[in-house]
Simulated scan of single mutants.
Amino acid sequence: MTDEHTKIRAATPADYRAVLKVMQDAGLDTDGVMVLGTTYWLMEKDGEAVGAIGLEHGDGVSLLRGAAVSPSVRGQGLGRALVMSAVTHAQLRGDKSLYMFSTGGDWESFGFTQIPLAIVMSDIPDAPQVTHYRKSAARPGSTTWMRSLS
C-alpha cells in the first residue's frame, strides 16, 4: 500500500532517466519508454524513484506498459498501487478496455483475463509495443491479457 512516504505522480520528460532505471532494475524491456502517445507515472518513496508504469494509448483502449517496482521495495503492495492507478487513468480517459503483455504474474487478481494476441494487434495497432513486435517478430511476453473497463 502507499502511505505518506510514498507518492505516485505523472512522469515528466525530466523523469525519463528515473523511469528507465526503475524498469531496467526490474528486468523489463525499455525500448519505446516514454514515447509520444504514452503516459507514465513514477512512484517515489521518501523522494527516491522506486516504481514506474505506463500506458500506450489507442482509440478507446490502452496497453499497459512496464509495471515495475524496484527489487528493494517489493512485497509492500506498491506494484498493486501502480497498476490500479493506471487502471483508474484508463477508465477516466474513457477507455473501454485495457490490454497488457506479460511473462508471468497473477493478473487475474487485477481483473484481467487471457486473450489471443491477435485481438491486441487489431485493437491497438499503432502502440509502440505492437509496432516493435511487428518489426522484430519477437512476441511481447508469453501471455496477452485484457481488462474490460466498461
Rank of each mutant, 00 (worst) to 15 (best):
H5E: 12
K7T: 09
K7R: 12
I8K: 06
R9F: 07
A11Y: 02
T12G: 13
P13C: 03
Y16N: 04
R17H: 13
K21F: 15
Q24Y: 10
D25T: 06
L28C: 05
D31T: 15
G32K: 02
G32L: 00
M34R: 01
V35S: 15
L36K: 15
G37I: 02
T38P: 03
T39C: 12
Y40I: 05
W41I: 09
W41T: 01
L42E: 01
M43S: 09
A49E: 06
V50G: 10
V50Y: 08
I53A: 09
I53E: 00
G54A: 04
L55D: 05
H57M: 07
S62Q: 08
L63Q: 06
L63A: 06
R65K: 09
R65T: 06
G66C: 14
A68S: 12
S70Q: 14
P71L: 09
S72M: 13
S72A: 13
V73A: 05
G75P: 08
Q91D: 00
L92I: 02
G94R: 06
K96Q: 04
L98H: 08
L98M: 03
L98S: 10
Y99W: 04
S102H: 11
S102N: 11
T103G: 15
G105S: 12
W107I: 09
E108Y: 10
F110R: 01
T113A: 14
A118H: 14
I119F: 02
D126H: 09
A127E: 06
A127C: 06
P128I: 00
Y133R: 01
R134V: 12
R134W: 08
K135M: 14
K135V: 07
S136M: 08
A138W: 15
R139L: 03
R139P: 13
R139C: 01
G141L: 05
G141C: 01
S142W: 10
S142Q: 11
T143Y: 13
R147K: 10
S148N: 11
L149T: 00
S150T: 02
